[in-house]
Design a protein around this nucleic acid. Structure first.
Lengths: 227, 227, 227, 227
DNA sequence: AGTTAAACGAGACGGTACGTCATGTCTTATT
DNA sequence: AATAAGACATGACGTACCGTCTCGTTTAACT
């Protein structure tokens, strides 16, 4: 996550950034933002998440554990959720890198394997919290989609295009729909049904999805009709 | 869900129930639980949900609006989530009845239409909160699956069985997997992508799912291989 | 404390008493007041007072310990203080009987010894609570004076009269003033200074009081003037 | 009682005081305690005491009236009683200054006049509550004696010593005993008998006390003997 | 080198809600 | 009719955090 000093992953509260002119890179007077503190804060969040869910972690606790003033946290993150999202993203990038090796199949399945494995880690468990938060804070929901959902879909989108091109997937399909069909069952299984989701399950899902459910073709092309 | 007087939908905190024998129906001494209060509490929750998300509703507020003591709420529900779930279930039963008319196809699509429409209502928006809560409180997650997820799946399960029997769906498919493929994309689209999910989208999902994604058949049955 | 069944020492809340005619002793319809319960309640109070001060004892606790409904307590006593006062009086009568044996001196000192000893017992410690309650509830203060303070003063009043008559105490003294001088220092020492108050101290107080503080008499009879 | 900024009259909860070195007067980091809030709280207590007794005043009410958070009160005072005692002391200092003008007689009677007059004021009425609290909380009782009772007694103690020296009071008397005899009757009359206690009554008490009760002297110096 | 200003730790503050407890009232079934 | 059991509305308790606000300190860039 290479980023300039005053840039959060959640991309917010960096009011001064715009003021910094393009070329000169003139630094503001006064003390600079402490990288050390940011590091300590994110680390504290991740450590605390091993013990209890985000809901039960207070800003006060994070500040204390990080050896940081509360105000420093409030200064750089608009809410606990954004803070947690930064921590989440940090871990996500380490554990689920987006790769495009050219080998579409491998990239896709590796992506799904890693993703669903990540959701079992303390940081990954945040996902459910984020969904709840997304209901409450539309801005956060937006951030979440832009920074987490979209990049994943884009990867698969590329694979989809290639597969259509090479006729591995039939034409005429709505790309968004297909992406929903690919990602949906996994998320549903994990977040809602809370059932285990190993590699076999991923393989089976994808496989069944490709082949379809249909048995003997119905004459008029509609599904689920009495013969 | 017809229930005896002292029974919550969330099925908890009714310590005395067991003590009541089946036949004699002997009532315990002392004042009985007030049905009126229970009603008022659930109503208050639903009304408040029109204004703001569950997270921002305090127990104190509910009690005040319902004209009820806080202690009464704490007595019968272990947490705000359980209370909200009762309210959610109440509305759900009204709006998304589980019907088995014998017409499998109609039952399934009607079920999905109604379900996803329900999620747009104030009570339906709770779903995201419940997922978050489920991460925090495993007991709640369990309740949620038992009382909400399972009954829906059972309905579709029956339809699935019939369809297999009549060869509308090919044999050899794992039932749970198919249910994930049917429900998953809808939930994902709504909860995670927060994209609209009308009747057309439902039709397209189901339709594509049945037909499968595959283009030109690959020789060895594996998906996504260069020809 | 011989009393009719439905009479509290605190003499309150016995609305039905008036209705009972003198001679016929016609009993009210329905179940009679349970002597047993009253007994149990007062006992419970006294036992609880051994563990903690009245302030920290709840009506609920008393009811539970006495195996009695809360309503029963509320029915017969207007507040916790009155209830405690009944318990206090009960113990007081046992431990500090008012005796008039004719031997004035002995009666007085015995009275004081016993009284101040009583104040060291759990029930006696209530006295401080009663003073506080008296500030809050004038009716209780009145009851307290009538039933506790006055009877003690009357005993000493008789002794005072005899002593004046026999010239052991000089004439022309205000009776109430003298009673204040006799009782005051003891109460002050115990309740306010919380200093020990044994027999010696009582003897010294009375002795000094009788003899007076004066040294060389001042010519005009006023105290504390430079000669 | 001149005190540093962060010092309560009740002398408690000032954990950090010790850490402040004597000479440098280095202030601790962070925001300083708000004098303004302390003032507002004590004022609120005194105002509320005009309407009702301490028992019926809730911390919540005080906080609201003072425009202050409850936590601020709990932070600096361990209980309502200590808070009330600070308010009491504040008023006491204004209304009953301890003076030692050298004129012993005047100082003493003025002290008693003012003291007993003070007890008729809203703040003064607290005294009874404090006695009750003293029974419950030994630490409070101790504070009460140290900060209220002792200073008064010391003043009179000095007068006593002078009076003995000048032979206005005879020698050989126990100082503590005499102080009890002087203060006791007044407190008793007011707190326990709840009888009025004007200047005349004070004069009569002191006068009678100095002269003694004795009538015809008994031969052996014992009081209360049959002639 | 001195000045200025931002960021920082500490922590007090006015609030809000928490979940618990006790109050005094009321209802129900029992005695 | 009086009781025990116990549910109830009410409201205060003392605690925990919230997000804001001084404080005095530290760190840079700009004089």
């Amino acid at each position: 996550m290479q980023k300039p000093a005053t840039r959060n992953d959640s991309g917010r509260k960096t009011r001064l950034q715009a003021a910094r002119s393009k070329g000169k890179e003139l630094k503001r007077r006064g003390r600079q933002r402490s990288e050390e503190s940011e590091e300590a804060i994110l680390s504290a969040v991740i450590h605390l998440l091993r013990e209890k869910p985000l809901r039960d972690i207070s800003i006060e606790e994070i500040a204390k554990k990080a050896g940081v003033g509360k105000a420093t946290i409030y200064k750089w993150w608009p809410s606990k959720a954004y803070l947690a999202f930064d921590a989440f993203s940090k871990r996500l990038k380490e554990m689920v890198p987006i790769r495009d090796t050219g080998n579409a199949e491998k990239d896709l399945t590796e992506q799904l394997y890693a993703l669903f494995a990540f959701f079992e880690t303390p940081a990954g468990k945040l996902l459910g919290q984020f969904l709840g938060e997304g209901q409450v804070d539309e801005e956060f929901a937006c951030l979440f989609r832009e920074r987490f959902i979209k990049p994943r879909r884009q990867l698969v989108g590329v694979i989809f295009d290639r597969a259509v091109e090479s006729s591995q997937i039939r034409g005429g399909l709505d790309r968004e729909l297909v992406l929903d069909l690919i990602y949906g069952p996994g998320f549903y299984r994990m977040m809602i049904r809370r059932a285990p989701l190993g590699r076999d399950a991923v393989d089976a899902m994808i496989s069944t999805l490709f082949r379809g459910l249909k048995g003997t073709p119905s004459r008029d092309g509609r599904y689920l009709r009495r013969s």
